[in-house]
Design a protein around this nucleic acid. Structure first.
Lengths: 138, 138
DNA sequence: CTACAACCTCTAGTGACTAGAGCTTCAAGA
DNA sequence: TCTTGAAGCTCTAGTCACTAGAGGTTGTAG
């Protein structure tokens, strides 16, 4: 049996976050001591590990709820889980695209400026003021 | 002179967002008609364009405030602006790194599963449950 | 002059936490 | 057994950058 603090240490999830997950319905309400403190078993630990891993991969709370739901109905098709993961992958790839464009643009902006001189003729500021400077879309 | 709606159309920034920017101190309080409606001139339009562009590049409201402040003190060094942009670039690059790792991991997870069978033996769910499966860090 | 789109302010909600106040409980050492 | 203080509890509010909605007022085209 672990206290919430021990669970926190083992998973790397902060204590208030664990309570938040419970309140959000991700974690089943933990058992309590007579004094109302939460106590967790191995299952609680594994569940939190699952959540942690999924959050690290950028899955939303909503998506994780769906995945946990699926986990608990072993008879249901695996397809749903794959769809959720695929969706997440698409999402990540879109963000990657966008960030790559931003990187290019920021490199261009910062390279154009040596940091000397007054801000009046600053290339960074000029670039931001005038979209015309940009190569690509964003 | 433009109304807030015309400004919105010209810049692509939604009306409530413009008001939010004003309230956040990014946009100087606009002039008003006798009936208390905002009216903008060319300067207001340019300022909003600047903000829009900077937001598109992922600069925080705080960073943009600093940049605008700089713009208004043409005597101050350009170095600060460059630093802010550099910081933003570092930030973007970190996110890129992270997202690339996530992509790899998600591809591995989704590739391992054909979507058939029951969720009991689903590779997606198993991968999320067990960090051991992972190649890299995240 | 009228109708109604567009404007106004204010409050509250979003997602995923994080911080803090004010109180109670657990567990180790004396 | 008692004490102390770290760790737990609940509840409210704050974060960021908006977005939505209520309920009322103004501008302007016909």
């Amino acid at each position: 049996m672990f206290s919430i603090g021990q669970l926190s240490k083992q998973t790397g999830v902060k204590v208030p976050t664990i309570r938040y997950y419970e309140q959000a319905g991700l974690l089943v309400s933990a058992g309590r001591t007579d004094g109302n403190q939460r106590r967790y078993d191995k299952e609680g630990l594994e569940r939190l590990g699952f959540i942690r891993h999924a959050r690290d991969l950028g899955f939303s709370i909503e998506a994780i709820t769906a995945l946990i739901d699926l986990q608990q109905h072993p008879d249901r098709s695996c397809q749903e889980a794959t769809e959720i993961a695929q969706h997440q992958l698409t999402d990540v790839r879109e963000k990657l695209q966008r960030l790559k464009a931003l990187e290019t643009e920021l490199v261009r902006i910062t390279d154009g400026c040596d940091g000397e001189g007054s801000s009046e003729e600053c290339y960074v500021l000029a670039s931001l003021a005038d979209h015309q400077h940009c190569r690509g879309e964003h």
